[in-house]
């Protein structure tokens, strides 16, 4: 669909190292690679889903992509410009373009501020709007997320989880950004409310021409909302490609395991019992593919050399696997 347009956001070999440095006595501190060698591009109007389990580095990546954290190596380009440099130059200018929605709606709203105060801040600080203009925009924004004007003078704790998340979305929307990074936006919500928020996000995207980066651990949620999906394991991309292709013909054994593990109504779960579910030690990472220890197809090559992301049999589908699974899943 968007093949001809220039990518809005580009990650080039992004890496994030935690710890590291030296102690006062000069001994090196243990370091952990939270994110390593991650490259992809997001086009305007697209929704890229990033899926992975806890500790895979997806939230760290999300913060880097929103300018809240800096990559230790590699580059993020936003509309062709270096994001890290832009953040250093003028964080507000970046915040006008890229916004973020957090997982826990109650934690992302200051308990001592009214909804009005929370929503007015970006209008005043980022857009520098006058009082009247602010009021007009405020009404528009809360209308967009289906909240009522009387909600404006209440405090966050007076709202349910779903309502609070809509306030958080309104806050992100207020500055009229081009890109919104959504970090597990529905994970803290009850299932019936989850659907409301997902539908709202869909609707807002169409209305305001937004681009989303949607991070989640829930494959079904990601599948529902995304155009393309990236699967992360142990800080790296295992696989990236069109959503439908990833979910029907995964070309990485980890993706396959994720799909087999996901519970669904009326489906029996069938995963190999030998599977331990244990992640490698981040302080002592394996040399080869991080998934090799759990992988049914792993051989000597997998354990000694890390596979690169390579075309996996369909346009725009890349996978980092020497012996990709063949065939398709039962989900077709």
């Amino acid at each position: 669909m968007h093949e001809q347009t220039e990518p809005m956001l580009q990650a080039q070999d992004v890496e994030r190292l935690f710890g590291a440095g030296r102690t006062l006595l000069g001994r090196p501190k243990p370091a952990v690679h939270a994110v390593q060698g991650v490259s992809f591009a997001v086009r305007k109007g697209e929704i890229l889903g990033i899926v992975g389990e806890s500790g895979c580095g997806k939230s760290t990546l999300a913060r880097i992509l929103a300018g809240l954290d800096q990559a230790s190596a590699g580059k993020v380009l936003f509309q062709g410009q270096d994001l890290a440099a832009a953040v250093r130059r003028d964080f507000k200018a970046v915040a006008r373009q890229i916004q973020y929605v957090f997982q826990d709606p109650l934690s992302s709203l200051n308990p001592r501020k009214t909804v009005r105060a929370i929503l007015e801040t970006p209008l005043r600080r980022l857009l520098g709007l006058g009082r009247e203009e602010r009021e007009r925009r405020l009404q528009k924004v809360i209308d967009a997320v289906n909240l009522r004007p009387e909600h404006l003078d209440r405090y966050p704790h007076e709202f349910s989880g779903g309502q609070a998340q809509r306030i958080a979305i309104a806050r992100a929307l207020a500055a009229e950004p081009k890109l919104i990074v959504l970090d597990e936006p529905v994970s803290a919500l009850d299932v019936s409310v989850q659907a409301q928020v997902l539908n709202l996000l869909d609707d807002l995207k169409a209305r305001f021409g937004l681009t989303y980066l949607f991070i989640s651990h829930d494959l079904a949620v990601v599948e529902t909302i995304s155009d393309r999906v990236a699967v992360m394991y142990f800080g790296r991309l295992a696989e990236i490609g069109p959503a439908q292709r990833i979910f029907t013909q995964p070309r990485h054994h980890y993706t396959r395991l994720l799909l087999d593990s996901a519970p669904a109504p009326g489906k029996a779960i069938m995963v190999p019992e030998s599977e331990s579910g244990e992640l490698p030690d981040p302080y002592n990472p394996p040399v080869g593919c991080a998934f090799a220890a759990r992988c049914p197809a792993a051989d000597e090559l997998c354990r000694t050399r890390h596979p690169a992301l390579e075309p996996a049999g369909a346009p725009k589908h890349l996978a980092a696997c020497y012996h990709p699974p063949v065939g398709s899943t039962a989900h077709e």
């Binding site: 826990d104 934690s107 200051n110 980022l126």
Partner: peptide, 11 residues
Amino acid sequence: REFIDAARLSG
């Protein structure tokens, strides 16, 4: 807490 990041993003 996340509202600190949110405030930064609000300018």
